[in-house]
Design a protein around this nucleic acid. Structure first.
Lengths: 258, 258
DNA sequence: CGTCGTTTTGATCGCAGTCAAACGTCGTGG
DNA sequence: CCACGACGTTTGACTGCGATCAAAACGACG
């Protein structure tokens, strides 16, 4: 099985076998984290860099009044705290939304990797910069779109990101998160998330139930919420929705041999 | 006069004279950009890295329906597009909110700088990561705070950032932006921004008029909107509001000699 | 003095929040 | 096997914050 993090890095530019092996070698210390427990707490200065291998996690901030805001979803292949090599303290927490397998990587190992392999340095920074681009997009969703488009846009993003790491088969994917978590991620209330999802279902744009999301017509959903994947900075060939009747390479496996 | 960008870098860790000179040498090609014109357009692949020397600018995205969302304010000392060395295309535009002086820096010069001076590499990346932290904070403001706290928080942030680059004297600072721009930055409407500012004025928390902001009691304003500067990742000594009756070094000039 | 951009005010609307209760589905323990 | 409780989803009734639309006031400037 190919590490999702390698898949993610290879979406941008192919790696040699040596480079892949170097990345794989980072993953040595693997630990299980139970749902609803913090992988890293706010204010901590973790000694390890954390990489999600399996499961879903989220960056979040808690306000004084107890309300929570999720600022990012972390999927397999995503680093939780690459920035800790430069910033001293976490300014937010990271919680496991499902049971997770997480790689604990010593900072020294990252330093070594980037020192030896410039292409991977660029790859890691690129991942960080894309995270930043996603934050900008979420800001747009929250401030200048209605609930319908905001939720639709988020689902489009998650669908595409899951495809990129090979965790969405066709137009189906696991979506193991509660409506309350969707609410915290969009800045809405759980009640309104529920009603918005019902509208999306009613319009035939999504089928959602028991932890599984099905998008019968990706292009229709994307159009309805003005989704443009440019902000994810993918290669053009993987970014587009499949054209009707035209073979896209979106569905072609990234590693035919693997 | 000390370049604001040097001030900004030195807030984190002091530089040697050599390092300062290397940074200063980046600024060679200076151009004036008129208010309301783009410094960089969305979708562009700029050949230069842009650094604000004077004036205010903003990152923004325009939606299909014409509405605009500002995702960051750029003050003197801020880089507009450091990420362009790694990502190929801009996923947003940058517009001058006032007449600006902007340094146009060749990418090669940045590469050279970072190759020769690790401490500056870290400094530039740190600036990028703090930008990301600010985005997370804005997300919280938009999604989980009311208008009053959101606007207050933004003003606290701008006040502190202006102080860091030496552009706020005491509790006064230039705030040369319109209420419409504040609206686009908070995801609100201009009308509601106006009414929110009136409430802030009515509560005696701010005095705002003719492009100048006065914060009579910084601690009161920060308390009213739950502002905690931790997310800006400053040295502890510059982060805190002045304690009453206690000498803080917040007001001590960073460069007594300069 | 007229124009343009910006701020301010008023009246009304509606999207999303709030509060509360019912419902379905599990897993646990009696 | 059923009762129970925990958790998540769904529904209903009501409220209110902030949006919308429109116009007036203000101020800088040519």
């Amino acid at each position: 099985m190919v590490h999702p993090v390698i898949r993610k890095l290879e979406v941008i530019e192919p790696l040699t076998d040596t480079e892949r092996r170097r990345v794989a070698r980072l993953v040595r210390d693997i630990r299980d984290v139970a749902r609803k427990t913090d992988i890293i707490a706010d204010g901590e200065s973790p000694e390890f860099v954390h990489l999600i291998l399996e499961g879903w996690a989220a960056r979040y901030k808690i306000l004084r009044d107890g309300s929570r805001r999720i600022t990012a979803f972390l999927l397999p292949g995503d680093f939780c705290d690459l920035h800790i090599t430069i910033l001293d303290k976490m300014d937010h927490g990271i919680v496991a939304l499902t049971d997770c397998r997480v790689a604990y990587i010593e900072q020294g190992a990252i330093d070594e990797l980037t020192r030896s392999t410039p292409v991977l340095t660029r790859g890691l920074w690129r991942a960080t910069l894309v995270d930043e681009a996603v934050l900008r997009q979420w800001l747009v969703n929250g401030g200048r779109r209605n609930a319908f488009q905001a939720v639709g846009h988020l689902l489009c993003e998650l669908h595409l990101r899951m495809k990129l790491v090979g965790l969405a088969e066709g137009d189906m994917l696991d979506l193991p998160i509660t409506q309350e978590e969707l609410a915290d991620a969009t800045g809405m209330t759980p009640v309104h998330i529920n009603r918005t999802l019902q509208r999306l279902r009613g319009d035939g744009l999504i089928e959602l139930g028991s932890g599984t999301l099905h998008v019968p017509d990706v292009r229709a959903l994307r159009r309805s919420c003005d989704f443009d994947s440019a902000y994810l900075h993918l290669r053009a060939s993987v970014a587009e929705a499949p054209k009707d009747g035209l073979a896209s390479d979106e569905n072609r496996p990234l590693f035919p041999a693997a």
